[in-house]
Design a protein around this nucleic acid. Structure first.
Length: 134
DNA sequence: GCCAACGTTGGC
DNA sequence: GCCAACGTTGGC
């Protein structure tokens, strides 16, 4: 079982869109490191949805419903997308400040490389954040 | 709105 | 193959 953070800009496609769509194709990733992570995803892996820019917080959970397949939005070979469904919305969003303030979360990619859009998590890190949000 | 960090591109 | 220039992202 894998754990991930998926970053999105709520202005273009955020948590509310995901809830409305129920299931969505997480495509448009054009970053090599993020692609490696997408390829590593398995069906039923868990993810956290993070809003960048205005919110800067993790909003809720999601589940991978289909592992990596070719991204149809790209004309190039090699880019992949996954399919996800909305999980539970956090009672309290977990902000970037909270994450930064927690020494147990110092090493996650969200803090180390703020520009990576698909970030792997350990099970412990996932549990810590989920706990903070409920 | 600004700027730092990062990735990509292109000239050499 | 190196590196400067540029574009983009995202935190502040």
């Amino acid at each position: 079982m894998g754990y991930w953070i998926l970053k999105s800009d709520p202005e273009s496609y955020g948590w509310d869109n995901l809830v409305k769509d129920k299931i969505t194709t997480w495509d448009g990733v054009r970053n090599y490191q993020a692609r490696i992570n997408l390829n590593a995803m398995q069906k039923n892996d868990k993810a956290l949805i993070y809003h960048s820019n205005s919110d800067k917080a993790i909003i809720g959970t999601a589940k991978i419903t289909k592992e990596a397949f070719p991204d149809k939005t790209s004309s190039e070979e090699g880019w992949v997308a996954v399919e996800i469904t909305a999980g539970k919305k956090f009672k309290k969003p977990v902000t970037l400040l909270q994450i930064k303030a927690d020494s147990r979360l110092k090493d996650i990619g969200l803090v180390r490389n703020s520009r990576l859009s698909v970030i792997p998590l350990s099970e412990q890190e996932f549990e810590i954040i989920t706990e903070m949000g409920s």
